[in-house]
Amino acid sequence: MLRFIFTRLLQAIPVLLVVITVTFFLVRFAPGGPFDGERKVDPSVLKALEAQYNLDQPLITQYFSYLGDLIQGDLGPSFKYPGRSVNELIGAGFPITAELGIYAILVALAIGGCAGVLSALKPNSTRDYVSMSAAMIGICMPAFLLGPLLILIFGIWLEWLPVSGWGDLPGDKVLPSLTLGAVYAAYVARLSRGGMLEVLSQDYIRTARAKGLPEHVVILKHGLRAGMLPVVAYLGPAFAGILSGSFVIESVFQIHGLGRFYVLAAFNRDYTLIMGCTVFLAALIILFNLFSDVLAAYLNPRLRSQLGGKS
């Protein structure tokens, strides 16, 4: 197992390097600089600014000095928020996005998992039909549509919940978390239904039942472990989707998290902030994929031996 984790970590390094390199050069070759404001900056001031941010040096030098700083965990200063470092800005925005993401994943797993397992226990029943139709609606209803609709219904017409903000008013975390989690709940429901259906038809489930084990033990202990494998494998991609989904959710609900920073930085051409956020998010996604792979390998002994990890 350890070897498996270690190999995966090693494989992540070139990917991360590609991300850093591509981001760096993409942003540098972009037309328009970070100091192109509404009014022209005086050439001498511009020069001083460029010198301050090392923009006057050859590109390759800049690249390596950026890499060097990065290894030490320093993402550089922000171009648009003078005096603040990218680390600070990410530190301010990330906890909010992380909290939102965790709630969204919990929503997805709780609602989707229950719906999927319950459907699989009685395939082709009304229950199955209703929850799978609901899942289909969830998949076809993008977050930027669902969010405003929920705001309209629960925030404006029924006035049950606040329509924006994060942690300012009681209950304002409900709608963003639900909206972000809904699509993934739908996918989780479909995956867990498929997984459980397949597992429940296996011989060892019949054996467990024949042994006289109570039904809930059969389902929860024997069925769930294998039946949830597709869901676990899906957690990695879902996490990546939730992170980018936070761009939309945070704009819709006016939450000042990392997703909003990223979109704003993109509009402002805040080079270092874009690069910092990209590298940070990419590293997170890669790590989470790793985590989801490891979890899948832990749950599925066959996969583990196939991938060569022994302990």
Binding site: V27, A30, T278
Partner: peptide
């Protein structure tokens, strides 16, 4: 596999910003 591991949504946002 390598391209798969890249966080693409983020890259598309970046691409659209950078190149008009």
């Amino acid at each position: 596999d390598i391209i798969y591991a890249l966080p693409f949504m983020i890259f598309i946002v970046l691409l659209m910003v950078v190149f008009g």
